[in-house]
Computed example of a mutant assay.
Amino acid sequence: MNCTMGPDSFNETQTNITGVTNINKFLEIMEYHVPFALRINKCLTPIWYLVGGIGNIVSARIWLHPRMKACNISANYLAALAIADFIYLFLHVFYELENPWLVGTLDLPIWCEVWNMLYMSVQYLCVLLVLAFTTERFLSVCHPFKSERFSRKTRSPRVIVLSFVVALLFGCPQAYFWQVSETESVCFVRYSITSAEGSFYTIYTWGSEMIMFGVIPLVVLSLNICVLLRIKTAGQLNIRATRTNQPGHASVTTTITLLCVSFYLIVTTLPVTITFAIQNNMVLGPLMPLSQMGDDPVWTAYFNYYSARTIIKEICMSHHVSNLFIYYATSKSFRKRTKECLLCASKNKEGETRQCPSLLLQTKVQASNQ
Rank of each mutant, 00 (worst) to 15 (best):
V261F: 09
L108E: 04
S195R: 02
T233G: 05
M5G: 10
V365P: 02
S195G: 02
G294H: 06
R39M: 12
R61Q: 07
V122G: 03
E182Y: 05
V130L: 05
Y201I: 00
C126P: 01
I54G: 04
A167H: 08
T15F: 15
N323G: 09
D295P: 04
V227S: 04
W101I: 09
P217F: 00
C226Y: 08
Q370R: 15
R158I: 11
C356K: 07
T338A: 13
P217E: 02
R61F: 08
Q355F: 13
L287G: 01
L139G: 13
I160F: 12
W48L: 12
Y77A: 15
T275H: 13
M282C: 14
C316H: 11
S318W: 09
A80D: 05
N348E: 13
C344Q: 14
H249R: 06
A84R: 02
T255D: 06
S151E: 05
L342V: 11
T15H: 13
F200T: 08
L125A: 03
Q370N: 12
M210N: 14
L287E: 09
C3L: 15
C43W: 07
W101M: 10
N116R: 00
H319R: 14
T330P: 09
L106W: 06
L228N: 03
E31R: 13
K336I: 01
T13V: 07
R137D: 09
R67M: 10
Y124D: 05
T134Q: 11
I40S: 06
N224K: 09
R243Q: 03
F170Y: 12
L50S: 08
G351W: 12
E184Y: 13
L265K: 11
L228H: 05
T154C: 14
L223A: 04
T15A: 09
F150A: 08
I326Q: 04
K349W: 12
Y49L: 11
L324H: 08
T134L: 02
I57E: 03
T183G: 02
Y32G: 03
I110Q: 01
E197S: 10
G53T: 05
S307E: 08
S163N: 15
V298A: 06
I83Q: 03
P157N: 01
W178Y: 15
F138N: 13
P357N: 05
I17V: 10
I62H: 05
